[in-house]
């Protein structure tokens, strides 16, 4: 192993303003359930960054096995922005090297408006269909679609229409019981933004922008992301 020349280290590219402040106390790693997986932990991740070995961190599984839960950051006595650092390590991965389905979901969402690619007509049919099912219990119930001027605009987690549509009954029941004014959008209704997880700021911004556009066009008072 060649010695590392600190005088020659490359400029940092990961997003952390405060990593230099690290005291190496290990409070972060001590309270983290994935410390030690692949021989890494949060404290070591900070060392890699500070020693100019960012690429090792980017190529490792650690930023992905970490759940970005923020317990380390909450406990850090120096207030180091550990989550921004780890998330940006995810963002520096080539997109075709993003693990699993996450980046495919982002691409699908940009293309179709939801992470699993449910076509609009199928979505509308499903809402009508499960709405009718709930109407057996709550006479007159139907899902208020694109209702202009509704008080609340709700986004939907695509896993519900995709796999567990009856789980939507819970919030529909509450809103109905409270006699609330609410709506869902017929397009770009996805509330799960995987750009957050893949470190993809651009995609994240685009997806959020579409939700805000719905919210403005439908002239709703509040936006609710029940995620």
């Amino acid at each position: 192993m060649d010695p590392l020349l600190l005088s020659k280290r490359e400029k940092r590219t990961l997003a952390t303003q405060y990593a230099d402040l690290c005291l190496t106390c290990g409070t972060c790693a001590g309270g983290c359930p994935v410390t030690g997986v692949d021989g890494l932990d949060v404290r070591k991740a900070v060392r890699l960054v500070l020693l100019g070995m960012e690429q090792e961190l980017i190529d490792s599984r650690f930023p992905w096995v970490c759940t970005l839960c923020g317990r380390c950051e909450h406990a850090c006595p120096m207030g180091i922005d550990l989550l921004a650092m780890l998330r940006s390590a995810r963002g520096k991965r080539a997109r075709d090297k993003v693990p699993g389905v996450l980046h495919k979901g982002v691409q699908m969402c940009l293309k179709t408006g939801n992470n699993v690619g449910i076509p609009k007509e199928d979505f509308l049919f499903l809402l009508e269909d499960v709405g009718a099912e709930l109407a057996e219990e709550l006479p007159g119930f139907e899902v208020p679609l694109d209702k202009k001027g509704a008080k609340y605009l709700f986004t939907i987690n695509s896993k519900e229409p995709f796999a567990e549509p009856e789980d939507m009954f819970y919030w529909w029941r509450i809103l109905t019981a409270a006699n609330e004014s609410w709506t869902v959008a017929s397009e770009n209704w996805e509330g799960v933004n995987w750009g957050l997880f893949t470190g993809d700021d651009e995609a994240m911004k685009e997806i959020v922008g579409r939700i805000v556009k719905n919210y403005k066009e439908l002239e709703c008072e509040y936006l609710v992301l029940p995620e």
Binding site: P33, R61, V65, L68, R71, P99, V101, L196
Partner: peptide, 19 residues
């Protein structure tokens, strides 16, 4: 100070099931 469920940050959709 609560502990994470273990599936945050996209881990539920990621392939690292054992971890």
């Amino acid at each position: 100070n609560n502990f994470c469920c273990g599936a945050g940050g996209g881990a539920w959709a990621a392939p690292y099931v054992e971890e």
